[in-house]
Every structure is written in structure tokens, then in C-alpha cells.
Design a protein around this nucleic acid. Sequence first.
DNA 1: TTAAAACCTTGACGCGCATCAAGATTCAAT
DNA 2: ATTGAATCTTGATGCGCGTCAAGGTTTTAA
Lengths: 235, 235
Amino acid sequence: MTEHNSCGHEAASNVEMRHSCIATVPIFNHLTAEEMNEIVKTTNSVSYAKGETIYHAGEPSIGLQIVHKGRLKIYRLSETGKEQLVRILGPGDFTGELSLFSESVNDAYAEALEPVEICAMNRETLQQFLLKYPAISLKMLTEFTSRLLKSEQQSASIAMETVETRIAMYLADQTEEQSTQLITLPMTRKDLASHLGTTPETVSRKLAEFEDAGWIEQERRRKIRVLDLDALLVA
Amino acid sequence: MTEHNSCGHEAASNVEMRHSCIATVPIFNHLTAEEMNEIVKTTNSVSYAKGETIYHAGEPSIGLQIVHKGRLKIYRLSETGKEQLVRILGPGDFTGELSLFSESVNDAYAEALEPVEICAMNRETLQQFLLKYPAISLKMLTEFTSRLLKSEQQSASIAMETVETRIAMYLADQTEEQSTQLITLPMTRKDLASHLGTTPETVSRKLAEFEDAGWIEQERRRKIRVLDLDALLVA
DNA sequence: TTAAAACCTTGACGCGCATCAAGATTCAAT
DNA sequence: ATTGAATCTTGATGCGCGTCAAGGTTTTAA
């Protein structure tokens, strides 16, 4: 909840940073060097300390924000103060898009999990580039369809599966994504619980059950060795 | 689960139908008559009887499908056979987009709620038009951000709110959307329950409670008169 | 018009999981 | 390294809501 720290003054390194940021983002990385320079000029860079709020639900959106360094979480709050973690962003990911096409206020919160550097571009500028370089739109459409798919699966999973199944499915997903048996949870149990629509206590208990059953081994806090994926998914 | 009934033979009326379909769809309706004709030529029309399955999860996607007449529902099935209604489409809405950008299989089911007429366009053709007419992409991006927003709100609501709150919020949404006190539920209690992540029994009970409290009146099956919106939302 | 099928309602019951609480472990900052 | 704060674990308890069941109502199709 502290103020954000704009750092748009150290000219040279700053332009360099913004360039390397744009160059690595999937929605822009097909452009020529010249086209990219044109885009880089329209961006600003901002950095945030760990724990800082990047944006609030209810305030007008700043525009498109591309993560250059660090990780941040997007979450929602219910009226009773419960939190749901929507997604975690890392370098190359972007946010702020919802208000890009429907001039509105943020509907979620963004908070830095680590020191974060961001490139920002306003709504009008992005729309201009979308019309000028149609391929960017296609890349964004691809990104959005993938997010939509994930979000709908998430919703279906919370609506239809038990907590146990959801946790097991999460472990399976992570095993596949990280393509290793020894997975590293990308977040705390509390955040994991809020992502899966349950409580930290229940996550602890279920993981303990999985361990008792011999399906996983917990090493330190964030490390889990998956021993029997099939058994997990059947349960 | 019956076969679909292709009707691509009655030339004249068919082209007419497809044209009026394309002309009324938000993602295309900004085009000139000539551009529209170009698009219409690439489409096929298909019709389905009530109850027919339009597509199955697991089978490869046919491409973009635009609803011209009638209503259909998109739903998912859990591994245990539970159903979640994702959304209901009416004239002007489209589906089949998820696989458009990620050459994959359907992840949900589509079923006709009434006799339905559809205009279909394949993946390659659409991509071609998206590059040729960038404004179409912008319209699709707008549509997708709106769907993504709804889907994330849906997921948050199921994860964080009680069934009672969800039902109350649904009634409030419908009151606003239909801008009347006497709302018409667009689906059966069973489908409503599956949409809200609960059971028909619980929906019945909660609506009865709301009625006892004097907040709503139920008239016939699909009609509900909302008497006290504020009370509903506080509860 | 009529009969069957689908849908809705209400009751009784039980379980999954949230909640509250208290102690143990780990992390972070000085 | 040390201490306080945050996180995690484990237990006890209670209730929201899913499930099963049975009867009533509406819709559908012939």
C-alpha cells in the first residue's frame, strides 16, 4: 500500500531497459527493430518494491503494463474481504488490458511479489499500434483466448470438483509445466489456497494426506516431490 | 446427440440468410456492403434442432460459428459427469474461437436450446480477414476482454461467495440487464444451478427463502418479480 | 387432448470443509 | 546471529449445502 516509485529519469539505461522489455514480449517480438523503436518511445518505465500495490480495483486503469523484471500477483477481493488470487505474472506477461477496450476502472488488484520493473503504454497508443500492425492483434487474441480458456477451466474446476481434486490437479499441472518431479510452488500456501478457492488449513491437511498415502514428499516449504501422479489424479 | 443437419443447398435464401447474419454481428457490422459480401461467400450455414449437440468436447473445432437464430448453451463436464453451464448464446453471438488461434480440440460442449441456425467460417479464412481488416480484431479483442472479465468474476464469485449471495447477485444482474422488476429467467432452474455452481434443490430453497422474506415473488416458473433489490444484496 | 417425460419443490440426513485456536517452523530485517 | 513477524501445521467444532427420496407441476410430443 505504499506509493509507487517512478524512475523515468536516468535516460540512457532507461531506454535500453524499455527496449529489451518490448523485444522479449511475445505480443511484440515479431516486429522489426525499427518498428520496435517506434513503440519503445511511447512507453514509460516504473518500478515497485516488494509488497507494493501496482493498481487498485476501483481506480481508472493506467493502460497496458508489461512486466520486465520480477513477479506480481493479480487478485480480487469479495465484499467480505476474502481474497482470490487470479494469476501470477512474470517477465514478458502483461496486464491492464481489460480496461483497454472498455474505458473502465480496474476490477482487480495487482501487487508486487518481488521488486518489479514495468513498461507502461497508454490505451490510445496501443489501439493505434493495433490498427497499424494487425499481427499484434492476432498475438493478443491468442493470448486472450488462452487466458479465457484457463479462466473458464478454473471456474469449472472450483464449481465441480472437490478441494482434494483441485489440489491434485494443481500439482499435476505444475509437474507438467516444470517438467520435473521435484516441483517448486510459485507461491505461499495462503496464496495457493486463495487461488484454488479454499483455505491454507485445508491445503496443509490435504498435502499431509497425500504424503501419508505415499503420493508426494514435502521438502522444505515450497518444494514438493511428486511420486505417484496417476494415484493423485485418480483420488 | 443426434446428427446435425446441413442445409447448404437452397442457394438464394441461403445466401440471404448468411448475409443478414453477418450484417448483424457486432464484429463485422462496421464493414462496407462489398467487404461483407466477400466474407459472406466464405461462410456455410447449418441448422440444428432443439436438443441437438452442435459440438463435443474432445473433437477438433470446426472454426468460428455465428448464431443467426435461436439460442444455444455452452457447457463443460467434469470427470464425474457434473455439468457446468458456461454461457448461453443468442443471435449475434459467436463461439468456436478458442481453437481458432491454438489449433486444438473443443474443450466444452454446445447444445441447441431451440431450433438454431448458424453461419460457420473456418479458421484460416477468419485469420485472413483479421489481417486484412484490423478493425475486426479490435472488435474481437473487445468481445474477449468482456468475456474474460465475466469469466474471472464468475470464478471469483463461486470461490468466495456463498450460494445465497451468488443467487442474489444473479437476480440483481438480471434485473439490471432486463431493466425491469419482473425478470424472466433465461434458463431452467437446473441450468441456473449448474451455472452458479450449485444444485437445483438449493436454488429452489433459496428462492423460497427470498420469497418468504418478501424480497421477491415467484410467478409461474420462469418469472420472478424483484421487490427489494437492496435487501437481496445485503443478505 | 392426453400421457409421458422433464422439471420443480420440500423434507431428512450426512459429510466436506470453513472456522477458530494454539503451537511449531521459517523467513526477514536489523 | 537474533528476534519478531509471517507462515505453516494440527486439532476440535459446527454448519452450509450436496445428496437421496418422494410427490407435485409443467411442458412436450403424438
